[in-house]
Structures are given as structure tokens and as C-alpha cells.
Design a protein around this nucleic acid. Structure first.
Length: 536
RNA sequence: GUCCCCGUCGUCUAGGGGUCUAGGACACCGGGUUUUCAUCCCGGCAGCAGGGGUUCGAAUCCCCUCGGGGAUGCCA
């Protein structure tokens, strides 16, 4: 979906002046949050096209690594969007890696839908399972041979060992301890060769555990949170890196892939922060480089729990089918946990790219406000180019049961221009378009009640006479309205009666604009229907 | 339980020792425009979690408490 849809009215020029003023704030932020002083630091503060050559020697590499176990939901979408924003800002390479090691829940269908949703959002990646690249393959399920080599290295160096404890034994140990307080006691940590052979002989398939070094401290210099210190003493003991069926687990291979794919900056959800020390410990044992980290505060529902299905719509494809515009969704999500210096909230992607800073992101979790998203979406619907937005409305009109194929395009655009202010989402059009497309739309309850009195009947009679007396020319409407005014009924009663007769409701677009679009034929039929109904 | 993160209007946020009687946006309430409704415009309501410090001065720095979240999986 191209982002050229909107001729945005936001104050870019004003913002650029504040950008310069704000420079000191940004430098402060980075001085605080970055431990090293390398060149990439400048990439964050200078627009890509303005970057001097010396600063371009290091190309940042980012990645978005979804697990294809369902649809793309808002939380993942936010991570993807932030990665894309920073890619655009810094000229980084964005890698899409599919983390499909949960063989039970992963599927190709899910992968395809996630990729489709990402594209719909306007996110573009440089390397991935579909586009290829020099660091592939990009599905973890296709990289098992690579991981196996590292596992062998780890075992050979004593940093990992086979563990013969069964799932049941582990579960039993967990039940004995306090809820959630389990720490692997190291049962198989120092098995002799003979002991291992004995278990193998029994047919036990071992997992592989990482031998967590004692008393080691690990500090994550998080670009958003600042330095976060952990000790190897309390990460839960030796953890499993390879399942008994030979499939490696996330916390193990994530760091291998980040290293092999030369990822320089990992931007991901905060739920991964606590597991980062495990990953770093593995990197140390393997002698692999550790990327920079930026852990994004989580998105929550209105009950302050991590956003999930019960909070309403959380999957991106449902936003698409309800008629949210990707520009609006991206804009809203980008503003969740970030604010522009100017205070501007409606901001097209290019402007967000210009102003956003990874270090300027909020540290605290944000509640997803569906209402504000709707407001923003409505704004985008109103300010889009009329041709483009009409095109986007078409499937929603069809979904509401109306045929669009035979309609005059210029006429449709005029109708949309008049009715889009009633739409917060594109699918809202289904509730109002019938006024223009149906021969005689059904009266809603308010309109029916309103027409049920003598004054209204006089208006109907006047309308009937006016229709009979007026021509069917393109400009019939002003004369028709003027003639109906001769009914003698005045004020609100007159105009609302007319509205009820011609549209079937008491609210809607201005009659002098709506009537010409409805057309003389339909108007005549509607007057006749009103007469038939109300004289009975 | 343990470890880690986080606390400014109902919600998203600005703020980074004095310019804060704390600014903006959504929502809500009132008014104007629209002979309707929506849009649009104007106005209003509403907050520094609590307690101790430090300081001439604290939303801002420090400590404690409380509250919220995350991790603690042969999920990612």
C-alpha cells in the first residue's frame, strides 16, 4: 500500500525548526543510554540523507522475527513498525526471520498471512524467506544443521550437557516447589560417562542443557531502558537449549542467528528483556558478538494486561477488513509510546521517520486506545484524495450488498465526498450508502414516527405536487425544495419531513447536495412511497 | 516466591531542579456553525501513586512503601 495517498496538512516546516532546537535533548538521551561512543550513535541523530560519508561506514542491520503461530497481532505489528521506522531513519538493512521452531503451532499459512499483513502495513524488508539474501536461510526450521554444530561445540567445551530428566520428573519437581519458583537442581549436570551410557541404554532421549556459569554478571545496555544488570545466579539454573527431539529452543538459537545474520541492533518487545542474559551467556560461551538491544514497552488492554484477544480486535487483518487504513494504524501505533516534539499527532510516515528516536521511546507500557485509533482513522478517511479513498470504499460497499460495477465513477466519488465524514472506518459506509443506492430506503423508526402527523402529511402532499410540477432535469433539486416550502409548514418540521421522505432518516448530509445525487427518479418514487405509507 | 522493568488527567503523552496556577491529543461536558446529524471552530472538566529525604526551591534527584507489568516452559 503506497503512502502517497494523503496530501498531509501537518506543519512540517514548523517541526523542522524545533528539530534543531531539540538537538541537545537528543544528544543527552543518547549520551545517557549508550555505553559505547561509536559512529552509529550519529546515525540516530542525523537524517539519513544528511549523514556525512564518515558516518555511513557501518550499516546497521535490524531484524523482525515473528513466530508463525497465528495472525499478526498489534503487539508484533508495533515491533515490526518500530524496526521499519528505524530502518528508514538510519538506512539500515531489515531482515525478516521466521522463528518456526515450535513445530506444533507453526504453519506456512500463518507465515503467509503475517507477511501479507506486514506488506499491507507498508513495511518493507531487505532480506527474508521470500526475498532471500546473503545470510539465509531465513526460516529457523531450515537452519537446524547450523545449530547442531554449535551444540556440539558447546558440549565439547563443557558448556552444555545432555539431561535425561523426563518431562514428568520435571513437572513433579515443579509441583513440589512453590508456584513459579522452580529452578533446575542440576540433576544431570555432572553425570559420568558410565551414568550417561546407562540412561542411553534405557532408551532415554536427552535434552541438552546450557551450563550456566556461577556468579557471572550480565548487563544489558538497553537503548530504551538504560543499563539493566542481571546475575547468572538467578536466571533459573541450567536451561534447556535443545529439546529431546533435537529441535533447539528460542533462547538458544536467537543469539546464534542474530550473530550469523550480522544483526547490529535488536528491537523487540520488553517481554524478552528478562531472557536476554541467557542469550548473552550463550554468546559468551560461543564467542559470538552481542548486538545492541532496545526493548519496547508492551502494549496493554484497558485492564492493563498484555494485549490479547479478549480486549477486542487485536489482529491486523481484522483491522484491514473493518476498514482501517494502514496509514492510520501505523500512525497510531507509532504514537503509542512516542510523541513528536511539535506535539503533532496526525503525522504521515515520512515525518515520523524524520523525527523519531529509538532513545525517545517511552519506557512504560501503554494502553491501546481503540477510540483514539478510530478518531485517527476517521481523520485519514476525510483527508485522503477522493479518487483513492473511493477505490478503498468500493469493497466495503459491495460487502454491504450493493453492486458497484455499473455505477458512474464520478457520481460515486461525489457520493463518497458527501458521506465519508460519517465513516470512522471504511465499513461504516454500508450504513449510509443505501440512501443513494436503494430505490426507496426503508424508513428508520425515528423518521417513521416523525412523518406520522398532519403537518408531515402536508409536506408529503406538497412534495407530491412539486414532483408532478417539476422537470426531471439535472438541476431539479433547488426548484423542488423551493416548491415544497409552499406547504406552509415551517422550520424544523418542514426540513426534517423532507429529509425523512427523501432519505428515510432524520440525519444525514445536506439535502441540497444529496438530492441531486439521489436523482429525480428515486426522489419521485420516495415521495410516492411516503404518501402511500402515511395516508393509510 | 525470586529476578527484572515501569508509575504525570479515565487513556496516549510533553516535561529532565525555578520559565508548572503542569502543556497538548482522544474521550466526556457546554457553546457556535449546520433549519438535521456528522465534520469544523471555541470553551470547560480532569493528573505529578504515597511517605520520607537532598535543596533557598522537587513532577523533575535519592531512599522506602504501595501499585502495575514481564520473566521464571522440552512457547516465542
Amino acid at each position: 500500500m503506497p503512502h502517497l495517498l494523503f496530501h498531509h496538512a501537518g506543519g512540517c516546516h514548523r517541526e523542522q525548526t524545533t528539530e534543531r532546537v531539540a538537538g541537545s535533548r537528543r544528544n543527552r538521551t543518547f549520551a545517557l543510554r549508550r555505553s559505547d561512543g561509536d559512529i552509529r550513535q550519529r546515525d540516530e541523530t542525523i537524517d539519513n540523507h544528511e549523514r556525512p560519508a564518515y558516518a555511513r561506514r557501518i550499516v546497521m542491520r535490524l531484524r523482525f522475527a515473528p513466530s508463525p503461530t497465528g495472525y499478526l497481532h498489534i503487539g508484533n505489528a508495533r515491533t515490526a513498525i518500530l524496526n521499519y521506522l528505524i530502518k528508514r531513519k538510519t538506512g539500515a538493512t531489515l531482515v525478516l526471520r521466521v522463528e518456526d521452531t515450535d513445530m506444533e503451532r507453526s504453519s506456512r499459512e500463518s507465515e503467509a498471512s503475517i507477511l501479507a499483513d506486514l506488506r499491507w502495513l507498508g513495511i518493507e524488508w531487505d532480506e527474508g524467506p521470500d526475498t532471500g539474501g546473503a545470510h539465509g536461510p531465513y526460516r529457523q526450521s531450515e537452519r537446524f544443521d547450523i545449530y547442531r554444530e554449535y551444540t556440539e561445540k558447546l558440549i565439547a567445551s563443557g558448556s552444555a550437557y545432555p539431561c535425561y530428566c523426563t518431562q514428568d520428573e520435571l513437572d513433579a519437581m515443579r509441583r513440589e516447589g512453590r508456584e513459579g519458583a522452580f529452578e533446575y537442581p542440576g540433576t544431570c549436570r555432572d553425570l559420568t560417562a558410565a551414568e550417561r551410557a546407562e540412561r542411553e541404554a534405557k532408551g532415554l532421549k536427552p535434552t541438552v542443557r546450557f551450563r550456566v556459569p556461577a556468579g557471572e554478571s550480565v548487563t544489558v545496555n538497553d537503548l530504551i531502558k538504560g543499563p539493566v544488570a542481571f546475575s547468572s545466579e538467578n536466571i533459573g539454573g541450567d536451561f534447556i537449549i535443545v529439546r529431546s527431539d533435537g529441535v533447539p529452543v528460542y533462547n538458544y538459537i536467537v543469539i546464534i542467528d542474530d550473530a550469523l545474520m550480522a544483526i547490529t541492533h535488536v528491537i523487540r518487545g520488553e517481554d524478552h528483556l528478562s531472557n536476554t542474559p541467557k542469550q548473552i551467556l550463550i554468546a559468551r560461551a560461543l564467542g559470538l558478538p552481542v548486538p545492541e538491544y532496545a526493548h519496547l514497552a508492551l502494549v496493554m488492554g484497558d485492564d492493563r494486561k498484555k494485549l490479547s484477544k479478549r480486549h477486542g480486535i487485536t489482529s491486523v487483518d481484522l483491522y484491514r477488513s473493518d476498514g482501517y487504513l494502514p496509514e492510520a494504524l501505523v500512525n497510531y501505533i507509532a504514537m503509542l509510546g512516542w510523541a513528536a516534539e511539535s506535539g503533532e499527532e496526525i503525522m504521515p510516515l515520512d515525518d515520523i521517520v524524520r523525527h523519531i528516536e529509538i532513545g525517545g521511546l517511552a519506557k512504560s507500557a501503554a494502553v491501546f486506545d481503540f477510540q483514539k485509533l478510530r478518531w485517527m482513522n476517521a481523520h485519514y478517511i476525510r483527508s485522503a484524495g477522493i479518487g483513492a479513498i473511493t477505490e478503498l470504499f468500493v469493497p466495503h460497499i459491495e460487502k454491504a450488498g450493493y453492486a458497484v460495477a455499473g455505477l458512474d465513477r464520478a457520481w460515486l466519488e461525489s457520493v463518497i465526498a458527501l458521506t465519508r465524514v460519517y465513516c470512522e472506518v471504511l465499513s461504516d459506509i454500508g450504513r449510509i450508502i443505501g440512501v443513494f443506492l436503494e430505490e426507496v430506503p426503508a424508513l428508520d423508526d425515528d423518521a417513521a414516527a416523525f412523518l406520522d402527523d398532519d403537518e408531515a402529511r402536508r409536506v408529503i402532499a406538497a412534495a407530491q405536487d412539486a414532483i408532478a410540477a417539476s422537470g426531471a432535469g439535472a438541476d431539479f433539486a433547488p426548484a423542488l425544495i423551493a416548491a415544497i416550502k409552499g406547504s406552509g409548514v415551517k422550520g424544523k418540521k418542514l426540513f426534517l419531513s423532507m429529509r425523512a421522505i427523501f432519505t428515510g432518516r432524520l440525519a444525514g448530509p445536506e439535502l441540497d447536495q444529496a438530492l441531486p445525487l439521489i436523482g429525480f427518479e428515486k426522489c419521485a418514487k420516495r415521495v410516492e412511497a411516503a404518501r402511500a405509507r402515511c395516508s393509510a
